[in-house]
Write a protein that binds this DNA or RNA. Structure first.
Length: 259
DNA sequence: ATGCCTCCCCGAGGGAGA
């Protein structure tokens, strides 16, 4: 089972580009972030034609997440538990049935800038709710993963120029501590289990030639429960598509599971 | 660089992103 996460930065602006990548990469499951679309405006047809079931959790203009699956899906849930007043569409989860069942969670963690401030407070409180959901997933003792745009640069080697991110919500000590609090529960950072090297990024700013200078950051992640990590056979970043026409500013990250 | 692009809103120019 191949599972990917991709911050698409507007599904309507990039449905054709996403289809091109689907045809090449052939993932079974794709978790999308920043669809920037309400559910009714999501362009479902090209994905359904390719055999994908489409499940959305959309919002007008901003945020929005979705799940595409060409394997059977059960028990879809929308919204991160823990705050009934949270109106922002940043979480979708479902059980995907391959040779065994895998619980997949797609997330779009708040950016949090400017920090400090109310947006940063929202980011940190959202991460506390994420930790609570993560603890529950671990208690299930089943294959599960949480994948998406975490808006977290975990370590200096995850940025080309870490010194420029020092006061940014993506890299501030409180953000990275909250990330480690979740990792330390017992999750595996799938990409780092596969590759410990520098200069592996998932995002490059549109401005100032960031892509051509490889001035990137690694902020899209997949965290695996122990039972899921045991199934992982490969993990990679499809960086090449960042160089195509009108790309998203993020690229896909994927895992291959024996499931 | 208090933002160099690009998305969204919809039909101008501003908010948000990271």
């Amino acid at each position: 089972m191949k599972i990917a996460t991709f911050n698409i930065n507007g599904i309507r602006a990039r449905a054709a580009a996403l289809c091109d990548w689907l045809d090449e990469a052939k993932p079974d499951v794709v978790l999308l972030q920043e669809i920037k679309s309400v559910d009714d405006a999501f362009p479902r047809a090209p994905f359904e034609e390719r055999g994908y079931r489409v499940e959305t959790h959309g919002q007008k203009s901003f945020n929005g997440v979705a799940l595409l699956s060409r394997l059977p899906v059960e028990d879809i849930r929308r919204g991160l538990p823990g705050d009934e007043g949270d109106e922002q569409a940043r979480w979708i989860e479902a059980t995907v049935i391959g040779t065994q069942a895998v619980r997949v969670c797609g997330l779009y963690l708040p950016n949090g800038n400017p920090a400090p401030g109310p947006k940063y407070d929202y980011k940190l409180s959202w991460m506390r709710r994420l930790k609570t959901r993560a603890e529950a997933l671990l208690k299930g003792e089943e294959p599960a993963l949480m994948a998406g745009d975490y808006n977290i640069i975990p370590q200096p080697e995850d940025a080309k120029r870490p010194e420029t991110w020092q006061d940014d919500a993506l890299y501030r000590p409180e953000s990275r501590r909250a990330w480690r609090d979740i990792i330390n529960l017992g999750f595996t950072d799938a990409f780092r289990a596969r590759d410990q090297g520098p200069e592996n990024y998932t995002f490059w700013d549109y401005q100032a030639g960031a892509w051509s200078r490889n001035n990137g950051i690694r902020i899209d992640h997949m965290l695996l429960t122990p039972q899921c990590a045991d199934l992982m056979s490969d993990c990679g970043i499809d960086a090449e598509i960042r160089g195509r026409e009108r790309p998203s500013d993020h690229v896909p990250l994927w895992v291959e599971l024996d499931a």
